[in-house]
């Protein structure tokens, strides 16, 4: 009798799992809180939407209709943190079964990885700080008219991570680890959408 009970108990998780099979738990490094740039008083540097827009224009982006900010106030990310953000994204993807460096070998959507990093930094800010400011990590969609590093100038759409730092906006392509200041990014006049 005891054997029979054990048998049915052993079956139960399998029966429940048939309707909603669950994979293994995902263990990953905790969500990364970037360092924030500081102002002349040593306080975390704040940046509002108007100044973000000005920085985009300085970065060579035309017009303002292609810029969308979900929040009104942000805190400037220190460019010292870019190495951490890159490392976290690769590690998190690996934990989830994605080989980020190989991602461009398949149909690639850069918005996926930009969203993941954007979400991760904001989760970290929400859990580990009392700040009321959003983290300015987002996605930039543009047309690749000119080549950039190993990425071709083939007229295709592509999406990158964009981060507002004390040096200006930084464009970052996670699979290739390429980055550039927006002002130096060769397709900065071909931006279709920037979302923070």
């Amino acid at each position: 009798m005891r054997c029979l009970v054990s048998f049915w108990l052993a079956l139960l998780p399998g029966v429940a799992g048939a309707a909603d099979p669950r994979g293994p738990a995902i263990t990953m490094p905790d969500f990364p809180l970037p360092k924030f740039a500081t102002d002349r008083y040593g306080q975390a540097e704040e940046i509002g939407v108007i100044r973000l827009l000005r920085e985009l224009h300085r970065g060579g982006v035309r017009g303002s209709g292609n810029f969308e900010a979900a929040d009104s106030d942000y805190v400037v990310v220190s460019s010292d943190s870019l190495g951490l953000l890159s490392a976290w994204l690769e590690a998190a993807c690996k934990s989830g079964g994605i080989q980020l460096p190989l991602a461009r070998l398949r149909p690639y959507d850069g918005t996926v990885y930009a969203s993941l990093l954007e979400t991760a930094t904001n989760i970290a800010a929400a859990r580990h700080t009392q700040r009321t400011l959003a983290v300015p990590v987002g996605v930039m969609i543009c047309t690749r008219r000119k080549p950039w590093g190993t990425l071709p100038g083939d007229g295709e759409r592509d999406a990158y991570v964009i981060i507002a730092t004390e040096r200006g906006f930084v464009v970052f392509d996670p699979p290739t680890r390429q980055s550039a200041l927006l002002a130096d990014y060769p397709n900065n006049s071909e931006v279709l959408k920037i979302r923070l």
Partner: peptide, 26 residues
């Protein structure tokens, strides 16, 4: 290659200082 490019080197030292978290099985 083309344009101004800098490769970001993942900061593994900073990464190693982050604790691990486990998400519920998806």
């Amino acid at each position: 290659a083309s344009g101004t490019v800098t490769l970001i080197v993942p900061d593994l030292a900073a990464l190693s200082r982050l604790p691990s978290i486990t998400l519920p099985p998806s």
